[in-house]
């Protein structure tokens, strides 16, 4: 069961956001197809985001391409991942 995927982007990057249903509940998945990261946040985690400041996100962005700092994911990997996702 999958809900509509929302794409949200600007000139710097874009991510896909969707609701993911588990057997007993629901999470919000944020997926970065460019970098290959994915996170599924539950309502409490999401709520905790609401009281963060820009400072928090600036800190997250200290490594602008993620902790592994792969500058780019190979295209083949991206294609395989995205197909698996569908």
């Amino acid at each position: 069961m999958s809900d509509e995927v929302i794409e949200i982007g600007n000139e710097f990057t874009f991510v896909r956001v969707r609701k993911v249903h588990t057997r007993n509940g629901v999470r919000l998945e944020i997926h970065s197809p460019r970098l290959g990261y994915r996170i599924q946040l539950d309502p409490l985690e999401l709520e905790s985001l609401t009281w963060q400041t820009t400072e928090t996100f600036s800190r997250f962005l200290e490594t602008p391409f993620g902790p592994r700092e792969r500058l780019m994911r190979p295209l083949s990997e991206a294609l395989i991942c995205d197909r698996r996702e569908e």
């Binding site: 600007n10 000139e11 710097f12 990057t13 820009t54 996100f57 962005l61």
Partner: peptide
Amino acid sequence: RAEMGNASHFR
């Protein structure tokens, strides 16, 4: 490089 947009951070 876009003429307009919205961002909290520029990369």
